[in-house]
Design a protein around this nucleic acid. Structure first.
Lengths: 239, 239
DNA sequence: GAGTATTTTTGACTCTAAGTCGAGACTATC
DNA sequence: GATAGTCTCGACTTAGAGTCAAAAATACTC
């Protein structure tokens, strides 16, 4: 506990998004939260995170938190914002540097759901500790915005996927239907995905082509990867 | 001086952009830097900034720095990124939260150019202290990118301006010519600017219409103003 | 005061990317 | 062999931006 006129405490938190199948056919956007065990806000749900370790990079800290909370590796990780309102934490001054991450849905399914970690629907959260509701709202806005002008959707999927699966990611997150034909044309023209040559059989209809993400940097367009395109910030193709 | 295993020091710095006329006809993009008077990097140029005051909001700290360095108020202010590489400052761990700002060119002209503050051309900087060259490069990238999809260009101008002046802002920053007719059509259709009804006389050609920025929120589009659209983050129309 | 230089302002045409929509292709199942 | 149900493709439409040149309006020159 720091008195008001000392140096602010520095924490790193992470908003972790995944797409998990639910009872109905369409998956839903979910994020993991941890239950606080001490004051302030004891017993309330909060974003996973913690104080920044002495010689740990910010992104590493977010990555570590994600691993400790979900047991998973991020497929996409990006800094979101630094929150520093003096009143955001009662009693002490805490500046939180927040990251947001995507993890693949099929991996997230087999995740430990301990006493103190639970997954919530992103658009139906309880009252969270601190200003974490505001933070999640902002992360959601960034996710939706960035999905439209960059190519991060495959961060929710495995290494190979059908166009229908990719389109479903867009439809669930943007909350609107997308024309299949137009989507195919745009995606193929962009060069972000390449057909693997294999097809997904076993469906009860025409077998769809399987695609994978094109890791060529020139196919990724000019979107924000942070101050330098460090490998850590790009998507990991194999887990 | 903090030993490596204590809490990191928190600093706030600001990249301040302005458009200043030079000897030739076209203005150039410039940023103010301050000369460091102590180690590390004594006598090298660095971004204006300093440690975060105990109960000061992050944006307020950036604003104050800007005022102390230039004597001006920002016409646009936005958080850029938090830099936290453990090796970025020799001897102590410093996490810098960096903002970027725009100030009007005509105001910046009459600024005190003290011994320890100087304005540099943004694309021709000396070797700076810490990782500040990297930071400026990233801020420049953000400025250029954001100029294209949002409406921040008038942050460089006064309250009223001609379309030619606004177009020149785009041309100087994006470093390419822009068709005047197309520019007019796009700008007028967007609704971001409204004609004042007055014209600029005294030129040696057809007197151009004067425009002002349209403060209506729905005219601003869906670009990133931070987690909440606080007035502080939006553009001030009168200085 | 008429002509010239210069930039503003307007409008027509073109080009590109995306939205719309429907028909044909292909596999599993009945 | 017919049917259900997607996948895949192609034609048409629409919206926005790029291109380009002509008309408009002022100050300056002679």
């Amino acid at each position: 506990m720091t008195s008001p006129d000392e140096q602010p405490t520095l924490a790193v938190s992470t908003v972790i998004f995944t797409l998990q199948p639910n009872d109905s056919a369409t998956p839903e956007l979910r994020i993991p939260l941890v239950k606080r065990i001490r004051n302030p806000f004891a017993n309330q749900w909060a974003l996973p995170g913690g104080p920044l370790a002495a010689s740990e990079d910010l992104a590493d800290s977010a990555s570590r938190t994600l691993r400790e909370t979900t047991g998973l590796e991020p497929r996409y990780l990006e800094q979101l914002y630094a929150f520093g309102d003096p009143a955001r934490s009662p009693g002490e001054r805490v500046v939180s540097i927040v990251y947001w991450a995507l993890v693949a849905g099929d991996e997230a399914a087999q995740v430990f759901d301990s006493e103190n970690v639970a997954w919530f629907r992103a658009d139906d959260l309880p009252q969270l500790a601190f200003d974490h509701n505001l933070i999640v709202d902002y992360a959601l806005w960034r996710l939706r915005t960035k999905l439209e002008y960059s190519r991060i959707a495959h961060g929710f999927l495995g290494d190979t996927f059908t166009l229908a699966a990719l389109r479903e990611v867009y439809e669930v997150i943007l909350q609107r239907p997308i024309d299949a034909g137009n989507f195919r044309r745009t995606m193929e023209a962009s060069g972000v995905i390449v057909p693997t040559g294999e097809r997904l059989t076993g469906t009860r209809h025409r077998p769809p082509q399987l695609y994978r993400y094109n890791a060529e940097p020139e196919s990724q367009g000019e979107f924000d990867l942070g101050p330098r395109s460090r490998p850590m910030l790009t998507v990991k193709e194999t887990a």
